[in-house]
């Protein structure tokens, strides 16, 4: 059984929804990423999205763009990002790990080799924000063969596409909270409840929401109606603010603890 399915099944028994932090792998370096994964699991993260840094992150706002730039200065590769999952497992991390990557690095790695590596290193799910259903057939077939969940995004603008997308979803359906790129925001799409209800009706998979969710209040609003909530830019910004602490071996523990406290605060 895929770890993501097992996790949602156990959360359902407990009557809880999932908290899913997103971090950019290699920001500021791979060793710190490993420590952050461990810290976030301790602080209550139910799954973690591992963002692969990319030169042209079309779906991302300035916070994650900057994280990507920092990681790429350290020449972090797709294989490094997948490899961090194995190191996390060796360090005792139990929760499902989901890879968030733009398509070109995957294409250049080679689809077959990519899925072999993903399986070998213990990644459970895959989000490719620039691969809409029109373009995902080959990837979807390989993912299904490898028991890796290809998690689709649906947006408030998807309208009659919701059904088609949701019917093919594995793992969960990732609902985009509002128009626009990733990043902290005060307002969500005006018809957000109706949108979520439409997605709920179209699938028997869990539904999660992300893009712009940044504090306990917002998490609380959505965990009532979704099976999971993704918090990305707000955590990446915390990491950015703690960089001076995280990049100094004497103060790293303190920096990690501060990020952990932020994650814990989202859980309420």
């Amino acid at each position: 059984m895929n770890l993501i399915d097992a996790k949602f099944a156990s959360l359902k028994r407990e009557g809880r929804s999932a908290l899913m932090p997103f971090i950019t792998v290699g920001d500021p370096d791979l060793d710190t990423t490993l420590e952050l994964i461990k810290e976030m699991e301790r602080s209550g993260a139910d799954m973690i999205e591992l963002g692969v840094p990319y030169s042209d992150p079309l779906a991302d706002g300035p916070v994650i763009q900057r994280a990507s730039e920092r990681a790429l200065k350290g020449t972090v590769t797709l294989a490094d990002c997948i490899g961090i999952a194995e190191r996390a497992r060796e360090a005792g991390v139990q929760i499902p790990l989901i890879l968030f990557t733009y398509f070109n690095p995957v294409l250049q790695y080679g689809l077959d080799a990519f899925f072999e590596l993903v399986v070998a290193k213990g990644i459970s799910g895959l989000i490719i924000p620039d691969l809409p259903i029109e373009e995902d057939q080959e990837v979807r077939e390989l993912a299904e063969g490898a028991n890796i969940h290809l998690i689709p995004l649906v947006a408030p603008t998807s309208q009659d596409r919701v059904k088609r997308i949701a019917s093919k979803a594995r793992g969960f359906v990732y609902c985009v909270s509002s128009l626009g790129v990733t990043g902290v925001r005060a307002d969500f799409h005006s018809g957000i409840e109706q949108f979520l209800a439409t997605v709920r009706e179209a699938t028997d998979q869990p539904i999660c929401i992300g893009f712009g969710i940044s504090n306990r209040e917002q998490v609380a609003r959505f965990e009532r109606i979704c099976d999971g909530v993704v918090v990305g830019s707000a955590i990446v910004r915390q990491i950015e603010e703690q960089l001076p602490l995280l990049q100094n071996s004497d103060t790293r523990e303190q920096g990690l603890r501060l990020v952990g406290q932020f994650v814990a605060s989202l859980k309420g």
């Binding site: 924000p129 809409p132 029109e134 995004l153 947006a155 603008t157 596409r161």
Partner: peptide, 21 residues
């Protein structure tokens, strides 16, 4: 119909833009 010139082209964009395209 899917915007392909041979193997090239296509629509590799975030879902938010698909209906606009």
């Amino acid at each position: 119909a899917s915007g392909r010139f041979g193997k090239f082209g296509g629509r590799y964009v975030p879902e938010t833009l698909m209906n606009a395209l």
